[in-house]
Write a protein that binds this DNA or RNA. Structure first.
Lengths: 206, 206
DNA sequence: TAGATTGTTAATCGATTAACAATC
DNA sequence: TAGATTGTTAATCGATTAACAATC
């Protein structure tokens, strides 16, 4: 049933479903079931069916889901059936690794602008993209109409970079800096902090 | 009340609390309250108090929490009041960025062994650690009694690397490969896939 | 037809939140 | 003392799960 508000937690699982479907597709499989998918993901089959039911009916009784059709549909739902321009702020070790990572472009996320404040890095080129002075951030992001950004700067300056980005029109931020950002309500933020993930596991290790 | 089972979701928030407390501590602040902390993290104050109440009483009515005391206590709860040896598998762009990242060691996570299967990489040195042939993985991990590992290899080989690690005695895996791993029940796994995070945001962008 | 699997309902389970007595 | 804030209870809210009619 479309129209009603879909819980964030459901949206959060769709990329995981999509990833698994892509994998099955690339392996040449044509059909799958909520049971098979659930088993691969460590999730209950009922949950997968319930999640999908928020958006429509994608399967057939008796046969399950056509993999290619379902991944197309989920891609549309998530709006990843198109290309997205992404800004990258910070060109240190991490920023450079992000810029070199091939996994973004193949999924439609294109790093169209890179920024740093280090004169030694400004002007460097990667994948045909030049590292801009962070002073020109607003201008470049405005011009390219960029809505998504990746923050890969030290924690001490992440909040001010976030403010700059939002001021420039960015609506979604993937933040690698180990700090919780304060942003306006409508701005999307996702966090990647490997230390947090490690610390979530040590609790369970004796 | 200690003893009862603490929900995973509560454990998952503790590293976030700890990160915020460390920040306040470094800023020289001595006391905080559940309200202040909640505001900084975008979380309700009641939730923070409830979460902490699973482990004991750490605050004082009227004055709140002593920051240094609370961060020490949370560190103990999470078992991050000690050093952890970590293995890193994969020394490509991402693996190298991880190996160079200073944020791990400062939090007690020390990369004590690095593995790759590329002859060109085996033998290279980083931070005094030599890149080992992945064939020696079991032996090295056994010898160093390593319980945690980071996977930074292509998705196509991540599952087999995971199997190897677990066979060698690893109990917790931070997986950067874009694939859900199948592991025995007691093994901890955390995932970092930046594409998944980006895809969780595009849904909300128009 | 027989077997399989969907989409959905209703029940269960668990997490969040509001409220407040206790007390620093 | 007055003000602030804890830890905890109970109520609310929301998510997961089991079960099954529908149907391919």
């Amino acid at each position: 049933m479309a129209g009603a508000e879909v819980p964030d937690i459901v949206i959060g699982r769709l990329p995981i479903y999509l990833r698994a479907l892509n994998l099955l597709y690339e392996a040449g499989q044509e059909f799958t079931s909520s049971q098979e998918l659930g088993q691969k993901l460590g999730i209950g089959s009922a949950q997968i069916r319930k999640d999908l039911s928020h958006f429509g009916e994608f399967g057939k009784q008796g046969t399950g889901y056509e993999i290619n059709y379902l991944r197309e549909q989920i891609s549309k739902i998530l709006h990843v059936d198109r290309d997205w321009a992404v800004a990258l702020v910070g060109f240190g070790d991490l920023g450079q690794a992000i810029a070199h990572y091939g996994g973004f472009a193949s999924k439609g996320f294109h790093i169209e602008a890179i920024f740093d404040n280090d004169p030694a890095k400004i002007g460097q080129e990667t994948n045909g993209k030049i590292v801009h002075d962070i002073k020109s951030l607003a201008q470049v992001i405005n011009q390219l109409k960029i809505k998504m950004a990746i923050i890969a700067v030290p924690a001490s300056v992440a909040q001010s970079v976030s403010d700059l980005l939002i001021e420039a029109g960015v609506k979604a931020i993937l933040n690698y800096a180990p700090i919780t950002l304060t942003v306006p309500e409508k701005i999307q933020v996702q966090y990647i902090d490997p230390v947090v993930h490690l610390q979530r596991m040590t609790y369970y290790l004796v």
